[in-house]
Computed example of a mutant assay.
Amino acid sequence: MNNPANWGLFAWQAGWVFTLRSLDLMARPDSSGAELARMAIEKQKAFADGWIAAGHAAMRGESPAAVMEAAAKPARRRVSANLRTLRRKG
């Protein structure tokens, strides 16, 4: 992920996930409460997993770039999985 283009792809994917989920929530407002709660929990888990991975990388003495990559990896994985799921739904 140290390649700057990968960060651009991650930002693009995150934007699409946000857009597609927002449209889905607007189309089905009756189920939006549960979906929003699930999405919030998903973000908290990705953040916590990244925090732990970054801590492990730092304790191993890895470079700051490697620590940052470890921190971002769970969020990148989740965003990619969400985008795949949303593309199949549409």
Rank of each mutant, 00 (worst) to 15 (best):
M26S: 10
K73T: 15
V17I: 07
D24K: 08
S31R: 14
M68T: 04
A71P: 07
R88K: 15
R87L: 15
A27R: 11
A54E: 09
R21F: 05
E42G: 08
A48G: 09
K73M: 15
G33M: 05
K45T: 15
D24E: 11
R28A: 03
A66C: 05
N3I: 12
W12K: 06
P64E: 06
E69R: 10
G90R: 05
E69C: 06
D30P: 01
A5T: 12
A71I: 02
A75H: 05
M39H: 09
E35M: 13
R78P: 04
A27L: 08
R77N: 00
A37Y: 03
A72N: 00
M68A: 14
A66D: 10
F18N: 07
P29W: 05
R87H: 07
I52D: 10
R38F: 00
K73A: 15
G15M: 00
A71K: 01
T19S: 03
K43S: 11
L20T: 03
F18Y: 04
W51F: 14
W16S: 05
A37I: 11
N82M: 08
G90I: 06
A34H: 05
L23T: 08
M39E: 03
P4E: 04
M39L: 14
A5C: 01
T85A: 15
A34T: 11
V67Y: 07
M68E: 13
A65E: 15
N3S: 11
R88H: 14
